[in-house]
Each structure stands twice: as C-alpha cells, then as structure tokens.
Design a protein around this nucleic acid. Structure first.
Lengths: 144, 144
DNA sequence: CTGTACCTGATAATCGTTATCATGAAGATG
DNA sequence: CATCTTCATGATAACGATTATCAGGTACAG
C-alpha cells in the first residue's frame, strides 16, 4: 500500500522536488511550459499550448499536475473574475498582481509590509494558517 | 435606499433602485434575504433559504437578481477558493474579509490606507477602473 | 383597463473541473 | 538486466455551478 513517506525522515532518491511524485515526461512538460511564461494561464490553455507544440498530454494530467504544483508552492493560483483557476510561475518571494481586465496583462506588485499586516490581523482574530489573496483588477493604458 | 443619483437624466418612475428594473416580488425577496444576513452566501444558498421560508422563486431568477445587484453595487461578490460566487450585502463603506476555511465565518476587516495604496499602485502602472480583491483565508480558533 | 415590453422559472445547455479505471511507466529490488 | 509493485496517465464519464432558452405571467405607462 501507500507508503507515502513517513512524517519525519525523508528517503527520497530521484523523485523530482521532494514532493514524493514521480518524474514523468508529462510533469516535466507542464513545468517547462509554466517556466516559459510569466503570465497567468488556465489549465485548458496550458493543455492546448502543449498539444500545439507537439507534446502529447491528457487534459486530466494537466489539471492534476497544476494542482499539485500549486500545492507544492511551485506556482501561484488565482481565480479569474469568472471563476476559472489561473496559474503562474512563482518568481522569487511572495507577491501579488495587478491584472488588466481587457488583455490579461499582469504586473507583479509587492505591498510593503502587507504580509506582516495580514498576519497581525489574523492573530488578533484568533485565525491561523493564513493564506491571503490580493489581486487588483483594472484596465491598462492600452485597453483604455 | 441608495439613491446614488443617475449620471444625467432618468425618466424612471417607480422602478426600485434607479437601475431600470421592475419591482417584483422575487427581487424584493432576494433583497430582503441579503439584507437579513451579513455573511457570504452563494446563489444556491439564497435560493434554498427562500424556498425553505416559503417564498416560491426560481433558481435562475436568484442568479439573475444577485448578478444584477452586484453590478448595481448593492452587494459584494467574491469568489470562494473553489470558484463559486458568494454574495454579501454591503455594509457601509468598502471593506474586506477574514474568512475561515473550516466553518465559513467571516470577520470584516479594514486595512488602514489600503484603498489609497491600491490606487497609487494602479496609477503608477497606468491602470484605471481599479477593482481590488483582498480576502484572507485561514482557520478560526474554533476550527483548530 | 389594456397593451406591451420586461420578468419569471422549468429545463436544457455550457463549461470548467474532478472521478473512474484500465493500461503504461517509474523506480526499487533481486 | 529482469522483474515487480505502485503510482501516473489519459480517454471518457460524471459532476456541479452557471447561463441560455422560451413560453407564459406580470409590472406599469398610457
């Protein structure tokens, strides 16, 4: 059965990123695709892009892989205004975005002392395991 | 009621909130339901609540009405982590929430000077019509 | 009161996402 | 290198939230 890694020690040998997942061609392809762009992309877009560039991969696998990468903290996940999940590779550190409703262009922003503020508010209210979502949506100059 | 003055001229007579929509029993019921609670609720929840309390109303109408109310600025709309749309009546002024992933309890928070900061960032990047989404998700004391 | 344009709601259609499950491949072991 | 166990894959079905359809009802201006 499972043996999905004992809690304490780690015996990994060649699995990719200490996540206990096997290294496969498909996972590598998704990782490469995400690393290639700095914009937000939905699972469907990533799937289409991979198919177009010749990589054979199933849609379910793309969904699974993106979800796993997001859980592992390798990529960011946000919800677009219409409810779709969009992923983007993490640059260094934590950050947020200013996204154009017209063309989807995203600018990375870093609220000074925002993290600290968020944690303080959470603690004051007895909340733990805080995860924050801060996204600014607007229209960029090009989209009037 | 709102009466936030239509841009120029309006010929409305008895339509409710200057939105050009007719005053109907269903719309009133949704409005009343939203005013009754200060928590976030999905369209499905609002529909079930109305049905349970004896009001006959169609699901499609609830969706339509909530969407319209949100567009009119009468209620706030956020996306839950799993992509569902959740609505909540606007209390005074703009605000944000600290939401428990376990029980859904929401605490209203007001980042000092956050609005100003958001607008500044937007302007610096040439963005207009800014709409921001700031939600903190965590686990409250009761949910460990 | 009357007419008409808008609203309603049961239902079908969409669409993103997840579950299923037989088959294939990764990686540990002999 | 051979083999074996287990996890990963992917075609497809299932799912759930939301939206479109459209016949019939109703608000409200005249």
């Amino acid at each position: 059965m499972g043996i999905d890694m004992p809690p304490t020690e780690i015996t990994m040998t060649s699995t990719d990123t200490n996540t206990g997942l096997r290294r496969t061609r498909q996972r590598a392809a998704v990782g490469a695709a995400m690393g290639r762009s700095s914009e937000f992309h939905t699972a469907q877009e990533v799937h289409a892009a991979l198919r177009d560039s010749g990589d054979s991969i199933g849609l379910a696998t793309v969904y699974r892989t993106l979800t796993q990468m997001a859980e592992a903290g390798e990529i960011d996940c946000i919800r677009t205004p219409d409810g779709q999940a969009a992923y983007r590779r993490c640059s260094s550190g934590h950050h947020h975005h200013l996204i154009c409703r017209g063309c989807g262009r995203a600018v990375e922003i870093s609220p000074p002392s925002f993290e600290a503020w968020a944690n303080q508010i959470a603690t004051e209210n007895g909340f733990t395991q805080i995860d924050h979502e801060l996204e600014l949506f607007g229209r960029c100059a090009a989209c009037s």
